[in-house]
């Protein structure tokens, strides 16, 4: 049981929680995640540790409402308890001074990107962050990201904010303008696929943080497996970051959709219980 010490809305569907977890706060590094379960019959879902406060013994989670599990979490208030939380899991991001780094994030990928942006900046990199979303309302954490970035480029599909265009247009503009040493990308799998195709063309080394479906998050089940360079890897223990150019995104997209029908049903069931 982990106590929620604060709750803050970034938007109607994106919420920041500070949660008591002294041991996790102590051992976590940028790129690590936790598995969270809400209620006795809850599902275990992975969430990136966005930040940690050693003094207070808390970690920060930024959650986007998607389906049942994320909605149940978002319904919790300050003072409530998260039933189960375990971590830090996964491999930490390899941080060093690479030079100039593009951090390209889409949608809720911004939350897991935040600690990476901060760590890269602290290591002396020039950090250019590309924030992309469908429209202005879906751009989150912009202020926090600006704190740690040398430059922030905002892209929206509909042009309602920043520049009209896709995340890839933003990245390409930077590549064409200056020498870039590394690209890190987090977002929907389809977005990461296109980022990877683009940076491969420019031979720009790229790391993608994969958000596959997980069950235990400790290497026990294989639900999170992806093909990287033709080999099967477990995202929860071998990742979540991989060389994007080696990742079989088409297979990953296919696997992500595997439970879509069941998830939709469960969400309808859950929404119905809320109305009663």
């Amino acid at each position: 049981m982990n106590k929620i010490v604060s709750k803050e809305y970034f938007s109607a569907n994106v919420i920041k929680f500070e949660v008591e977890a002294p041991l996790i706060a102590k051992s976590r590094k940028a790129g690590h995640f936790v598995m969270v379960k809400i209620g006795a019959k809850g599902e275990r879902i992975p969430l990136t540790i966005a930040d940690a406060d050693l003094q207070k013994g808390t970690i920060t989670l930024v959650v986007q409402k998607m389906g049942v599990s994320s909605s149940k979490l978002c319904a919790l208030e300050e003072g409530d308890f998260i039933t189960d939380m375990v971590g830090p899991l996964g491999k930490a991001t390899h941080i060093e001074n690479f030079g100039t780094v593009i951090c390209a994030c889409g949608g809720v990928g911004t939350a897991p990107m935040m600690p990476i942006v901060a760590a890269l900046k602290a290591a002396g990199n020039r950090v250019i962050t590309v924030l992309a979303a469908r429209n202005k309302d879906l751009i989150i954490l912009e202020d926090q990201i600006r704190q740690y970035s040398d430059e922030v480029i905002v892209m929206t599909d509909d042009g309602s904010y920043g520049t009209k265009g896709l995340v890839t247009n933003g990245i390409e503009a930077v590549i064409n303008r200056e020498k870039v040493d590394l690209c890190v990308t987090i977002g929907p799998a389809i977005m990461m696929k296109f980022v990877s195709i683009l940076t491969k063309k420019y031979e720009l080394p790229t790391l993608a943080s994969l958000n596959t479906i997980m069950v235990d998050g400790t290497g026990m089940c294989g639900a999170c497996r992806v093909s990287v360079g033709g080999k099967t890897k477990f995202v929860c223990v071998d990742g979540p970051e991989f060389d994007a150019h080696q990742v079989d995104f088409d297979e990953m997209l296919m696997r992500l959709g595997g439970y879509r029908d069941i998830e939709r049903e469960e969400n309808e069931h859950y929404q119905a219980t809320l109305k009663n």
Binding site: L23, I24, S27, M85, V86, P88
Partner: peptide, 8 residues
């Protein structure tokens, strides 16, 4: 919820 080697 405690992974030895990770949490501690």
């Amino acid at each position: 919820n405690c992974v030895v080697g990770k949490t501690i």
